[in-house]
């Protein structure tokens, strides 16, 4: 009993000392907290160095998304390059988990250190492609999926990609 009472008195004393300790509070709107560059916040779609959309509408992000907040539709241009016809993220559902970023084979979808996305109207939380697309390359400058992929597009035929051998002519018998 005596020990229990003593412990209460000690805890009173220790808590009282905290009057002189520095508060841990960050006064948020005036004093912005530091967010790391890889902080998982608002999602953006990036472009490759040529200024084209990186997204190839493979749907992996939509599959990986645990809350199903990503919706997109694939389409092609006249040279066979894939791109999303629409790309829609419902940020009122998004939990900023970053699974889409991990799933993306082209570094197109990226999370940014920005979380201040409050809206009065819930419909405004649904971002379309023109809201998501940024003009830069995001966290992976210089990377272009089509430059390392074997697919033929405009101005780049098969075998012209980075580290890619010429395609084998299966109709020839030469080694």
């Amino acid at each position: 009993m005596l020990k229990a009472i003593l412990s209460q008195i000690i805890s009173l004393y220790r808590i009282c000392l905290h009057l002189f300790a520095k508060a841990d509070t960050v006064q948020y709107p005036e004093e912005m907290p530091y967010l790391a560059p890889r902080y998982r916040g608002r999602i953006v779609l990036t472009r490759d160095p040529d200024g084209n959309e990186r997204c190839v509408a493979c749907n992996l992000c939509a599959v990986a998304c645990p809350v199903d907040c990503i919706a997109l539709q694939k389409t092609e241009d006249e040279h066979g390059r894939w791109y999303p016809e629409f790309f829609r993220i419902n940020f009122s559902r998004c939990i900023m988990c970053g699974m889409c970023e991990e799933a993306c084979p082209t570094y197109s979808i990226q999370l940014t250190p920005d979380f201040e996305m409050c809206e009065y109207d819930r419909q405004n939380m649904v971002y379309e492609k023109e809201h998501l697309l940024i003009s830069g390359q995001g966290k992976y400058p210089g990377y272009s999926f089509y430059n390392v992929a074997g697919k033929a597009i405009k101005d780049k035929d098969k075998g012209e990609a980075l580290n890619e051998a010429q395609p084998i002519d299966i109709k020839s018998l030469l080694p």
Binding site: I15, H18, L19, K22, A23, D24
Partner: peptide, 8 residues
């Protein structure tokens, strides 16, 4: 209470 709990 805030001061004692290291808050403001």
């Amino acid at each position: 209470l805030g001061f004692w709990q290291d808050r403001l």
